[in-house]
């Protein structure tokens, strides 16, 4: 991270907000359907590298902030396209954020709820100003302004940025000792546009002869029935770390059913090679792969490589022992 060359390589995705911002910028605004892949190979966000460093809450923060940005952008586009005073149902779409099981949902929810209750006062000045304006606008909310501010998600978004940025780790207890709780109406934390759910609920699905049947059954009761109820509301499905065979099978089923009408985002997925047929056309929107290079006959690993994809091309950056910062080595 100390060698990162921001002017060449873009925003450093070392905080959930920075990652969400950088990745959101790699989506084209007209991409409203189809499957996109985010491939962020940082150990705390990447279950493919093992569970030792992986932080499910941090990964959920990135996903949450990213889909929030995309949904907001879509909403802004739709509002621009329509009369701003008449917000159509299509201008208030929502996202479904999927994780593996209910235990993961519960641990993420616990941290998010805790954060919602304990805002800190060490926000940046800009965030303070934004929040002051938001509070003023909310306190002025009445019938005349209802049309303009009919959805407080915008303000919830700013607050969730502040919350995420203010926490150095996502541990459930991280805010206990150091952070001073701020009195705040927790109802202003808007989660209405992001629904966190699990693929399989409480079901434990292992590989075996009845795997497919179990996957379909669990998917039906946890995701498909919900999407059926909300089909006019939800336009984005994001799944964090589908890495096991049952999860990939579930994703393939969802892609088959919804990819033509919804935007599906897979964050750090792992598929067998060759890719499953349903995912052949999935596009890698953003990829960051850090490596250390060493000669075959040496243990010395002073050369750092980052393979990065932000738009169409893949770039390779290098920083050896003599370089202070990464320089661009090649474009593929």
């Amino acid at each position: 991270e100390t060698s990162w060359n921001q002017s060449l390589m873009g925003n450093i995705p070392t905080t959930p907000m920075a990652a969400a911002q950088e990745i959101a910028d790699c989506f084209f605004t007209h991409e409203n359907a189809g499957v996109s892949i985010i491939d962020l190979q940082l150990p705390s966000l990447d279950l493919r590298q093992g569970a030792r460093w992986y932080d499910a809450v941090l990964a959920a923060d990135v996903a949450h902030l990213l889909v929030e940005r995309l949904v907001q952008r879509q909403r802004d586009n739709n509002v621009d396209a329509n009369d701003t005073n008449k917000q159509t149902p299509s201008s208030s779409k929502k996202a479904l954020l999927l994780v593996r099981d209910e235990a993961t949902v519960r641990s993420i929810e616990r941290v998010w709820e805790k954060r919602a209750l304990s805002f800190t006062e060490d926000d940046t000045e800009e965030e303070e100003n934004d929040e002051e304006e938001d509070e003023q606008e909310m306190s002025n909310n009445n019938e005349e302004t209802t049309v303009l501010y009919d959805d407080f998600a915008d303000f919830g978004f700013l607050e969730s940025i502040a919350a995420v940025e203010s926490l150095s780790t996502s541990s459930p207890n991280a805010s206990d000792s150091q952070q001073k709780p701020r009195k705040r109406n927790t109802e202003t934390i808007d989660r209405r546009r992001i629904q966190l759910q699990s693929l399989f609920g409480e079901a434990i699905i292992s590989e075996g002869a009845d795997m497919e049947q179990k996957v379909i059954r669990a998917l039906q009761s946890n995701v498909v029935s919900y999407l059926k109820e909300q089909q006019d509301e939800i336009d984005t499905i994001a799944m964090i770390a589908p890495v096991t065979r049952p999860e990939v099978m579930a994703i393939c089923a969802l892609v088959q059913k919804y990819a033509k009408t919804m935007r599906i985002i897979l964050i750090n997925p792992h598929f067998a090679k060759p890719r499953p047929m349903e995912l052949q056309h999935a596009k890698t929107v953003y990829s960051l792969r850090p490596f250390l290079v060493r000669a075959k006959d040496s243990r010395k690993t002073l050369t750092k490589i980052v393979v990065l994809k932000r738009k169409q091309e893949w770039e390779v950056f290098i920083s050896d022992s003599a370089s202070e910062q990464f320089e661009r080595l090649a474009v593929n």
Partner: peptide, 23 residues
């Protein structure tokens, strides 16, 4: 998906050799 590790390694090797030659 993406460049092969062999290609990345070859780029790095070329770069490091060039750097060594310069120094």
């Amino acid at each position: 998906d993406g460049p092969s590790m062999e290609w990345v390694a070859a780029c790095a090797q070329q770069y490091l050799q060039q750097k060594n030659a310069e120094s």
